[in-house]
Design a protein around this nucleic acid. Sequence first.
RNA 1: GGUGACGUGACCGAGUGGCUAGGUAGAGGUCUGCAAAACCUCCUACAGCGGUUCGAAUCCGCUCGUCACCUCCA
Length: 499
Amino acid sequence: MQHPLSLYNTLTRRKDPFVPVHEPFVGMYLCGPTVYSEAHVGNARGPVVFDVLARYLRHLGYTVRYVRNITDVGHLEGDTDEGEDKISKMARARQLEPMQVAESYANRYHRHMEVLGCTPPDIEPRASGHITEQIGMIEEIMANGFAYEVNGSVYFDVPAYNQQHNYGKLSGRVVEELLSGTRDNLAGQDEKRSPLDFALWKRADERHLMRWPSPWGEGFPGWHLECSAMGRKYLGAEFDIHGGGLDLMFPHHECEIAQSQASHSHTDEARVWFHNNMITVNGQKMSKSVGNFITISQLFAGDHALLTQAYSPMTARFFLLQAHYRSTVDITDDALQAAAKGYRKLMNGLRQITRLNLPEGTERAADTAAADAELRKLVADCYVGLNDDLNTARAIAGLFNLLRKFNGYYNQPVTLAQVGEAALTEATEAYRTLVQDILGLRDEPRANAEELLGLTLQFYTEAKSAKDYAKVDVIRAALKEQGILVKDTKAGVDWAYEE
RNA sequence: GGUGACGUGACCGAGUGGCUAGGUAGAGGUCUGCAAAACCUCCUACAGCGGUUCGAAUCCGCUCGUCACCUCCA
């Protein structure tokens, strides 16, 4: 498959041409949500960007298998090993079954992803459903001498691993430097041989709600393990693209690579490690711990001190895609307002391209070569942007340039006659494809049907009192076409759905 | 402290050794009953100071500033 798509690979620190392991198949894995609280806008960036990547790869003709996990077990609270996992903690606080908490947030996450236009992943495995696989992986790592058991917990032996492999290859870290930087941070880590070691399996204390039997007693899996285990199960020992937020690069993804190397495959799990940058608020990373976050629900409702109004899901998607995924993007009310208008403009273009017909009596120019070439260049620019490390910002800029052309044709049919039919069709189809299929921006109906109906009934009432029965009949018939019955009652005009 | 990024016009935000980014906002114009939309024109910026170069916002150095990771985080 010939195409010039290049992606920046964190592992190689440069843009490399994308070559799948098993063409035409592409396996991609994205670290999904930990379903113990409401997702914020920052959490939406990865899925949106990864969705565009999946859409574009499909557009290029690949058969994509997209896996995104749901983390419903295990992530420790804080950096001590005494913590309880987040879901258990919340469940205890609310007197709920832990899975109830997870399920409820997972459902909400799905709704948000849906309205954000994210195609569901092909497989959405849950950590809790893959305990067996995770235990199996731990056993492999132990058998290879890269993990040890202490008091019912199993730890990954980073120094041992680093003697044969390179721990830190993804994030550019050096084990010696990491060691020197962690000296005063040893509280509660006495079970570990090295402070860099990380848990593969944790013994559950009596308070811990989520627990599973294992060869080492009752416990739960470590926080980096699920992705390695599930990625391997559904995508193979070496798959194509592993994505996630930049803040997962270390230690999470670093540990994933170590686990994969140490257990079985001697691969880096994925060929391309794909990291999106953070959303900032006033220049500072949006994060749960800092508390400067806007939840997705708050954004959609306009329910936040930083927001003057509600912003629709598609506005949010457009806003995210207007920046390149490897840049930080600062979220402000002004920026969102600008995005809302830009998004609308793009949507108006979607309707505009259906109206570009040569008027009766207008002759198409004999030689359209120049105009055709110009139009094709504008289309090509969009793809150049996408191919260059999925630069959606450039692609969108290209779309606006195209749209300006289309609007010009519409205003001045003379100029429309200068361009050939084939080139025009290509361009309008490219516009539609890029906007809807690749960027995944759909037209959100803006008009409120009830209000429009109310307006129509107002005209109906006015026509009636003016005894303009011709108009009255026209309105009634038109509404009947839409399945709406107008009802003249003593109390006034009302309506009902036709039964 | 270690490591790594970044500083673009009123705002957001691409990009790059020489060629218009784009969106939003603002000004003028065309169109229009008024308006809106659209189109045309304008506002032509790259933190500061040096250096390399025929030429740098783009490469190098220094200074200032901001941020990220090193701990749960997309």
